[in-house]
Design a protein around this nucleic acid. Structure first.
Length: 349
DNA sequence: AAATAGAGCAACCGCGGAAGA
DNA sequence: ATCTTCCGCGGTTGCTCTATT
């Protein structure tokens, strides 16, 4: 009956992770893949709770995490999405594939919330702020607006989103066959969107973060530190793939590999730069490559964990759409609509 | 130079839904 | 059908670093 206990609390270590623990954890996940967290402490000998292992992996050790300052675009998206989704950081993080929910949450709590409160103080109330940002369909308007009016507004938003998207994609409306969208579903349950928008983006593996404002004496985390500590992990550097001037700038560039999983510059194939959603810190991004056309188990492992295969998808010109969507005059709902529509437009999604 | 306050961030805690037995 | 555990999420804490006095 039931499953075995998660982890006995006796002898469970707490507090900051050490580089040695990180190495053990990453090595194990490399071999077995993420998941089945319950077995991780047992199999690795780590004196950590399974939850702690999972948290460590998802927030810091997992490939593809971007660290460092948030860009204006990211900040804008967070503000919009927070207004739309509330404090559902995991959902918000799904729109910012390189950011963890914890990072976004911290950023919001330590910076953005204060910033908005300050703005709010300047104006009479937060609604005025949102109106000043052109967010006519914000949650504030939503609550103030009568239900019928709000839903009609949504219908209009949906229609506008469809039109704009079709124009952007140069597609005929008839060929898209968009299913009817329930405005009530969209407006009241934005998380019901089945397709994670981050899945639209090819798997990117961020370089291990560099210590930004942290003291060098602090072991903040990351594979970067692991890489420094564990030269045995490192295979031959991949230089040939560094074709872009935007190649990795860190001094550890030639050491960015995990036992066959090498961190290189972003691929050009099937990856439109515009898909970065305006993340301009491009040099911090890289892609997993095993140096061969095929996908290594390790590579597929990380890909599978992160995003489904989208190689065959024909991506729309997101730069245009992004600007349109992130325009302050554009309702946040339309942003949501856009991602939802993409799930119908893009093949294989 | 020392003390204090504030900011930033990593990690823990508790809860709820999902799923296995 | 029920119990138990796993997993993921959001809120919160507490440590470290930096800036200010």
């Amino acid at each position: 009956m039931g499953r075995p206990p998660c982890c006995d609390k006796v002898g469970v270590k707490k507090g900051p992770w050490t580089p040695e623990e990180d190495i053990i954890l990453v090595s194990y996940i490399q071999e077995h893949g993420p998941g089945n967290w319950r077995s991780v402490p047992t199999n690795t000998g780590l004196l950590r709770c399974s939850k702690s292992c999972r948290l460590r992996w998802t927030n810091y050790l997992r490939p593809g995490i971007k660290r460092g300052n948030f860009t204006d675009q990211e900040e804008k998206m967070i503000i919009h999405l927070q207004a739309l989704l509330g404090n559902r950081w995991a959902a918000i993080a799904s729109y910012l594939p390189q950011r963890t929910d914890n990072d976004i949450k911290n950023y919001w709590n330590t910076y953005l919330k204060k910033k908005l409160n300050k703005i709010q103080g300047d104006s009479s109330d937060l609604e005025n702020h949102h109106r000043s940002m052109g967010s006519n369909s914000s949650s504030f308007s939503q609550t103030a607006m009568p239900k019928g009016q709000w839903e009609r507004r949504l219908q209009t938003d949906i229609h506008m989103a469809k039109q704009a998207l079709c124009e952007a994609l140069s597609l005929d409306n008839k060929s898209i066959n968009l299913p009817e969208l329930s405005s009530s579903t969209v407006s009241r349950n934005p998380s019901s969107i089945s397709t994670n928008p981050s899945s639209l983006i090819h798997q990117q593996v961020a370089l291990p973060p560099t210590q930004t404002n942290q003291s060098a004496t602090t072991y903040a985390s990351s594979a970067d530190n692991i890489a420094r500590l564990l030269p045995n992990w490192m295979k031959k550097p991949q230089k040939s793939s560094q074709t872009s001037s935007e190649s990795i700038s860190t001094t550890d560039q030639t050491h960015n590999s995990f036992d066959g999983v090498q961190f290189t510059s972003p691929p050009s194939e099937g990856f439109d730069n515009s898909l970065q959603f305006g993340f301009n810190n491009y040099s911090n991004y890289s892609n997993i490559s095993d140096g061969s056309p095929s996908v290594s188990p390790e590579t597929s492992l990380f890909q599978d964990e992160s995003k489904p295969n989208t190689k065959n998808a024909q991506f729309p010109p997101l730069t245009f759409l992004e600007k349109w969507l992130l325009d302050d005059a554009t309702a946040q709902v339309v942003l949501n609509m856009y991602f939802q529509l993409l799930t119908y437009v893009l093949p294989g999604q």
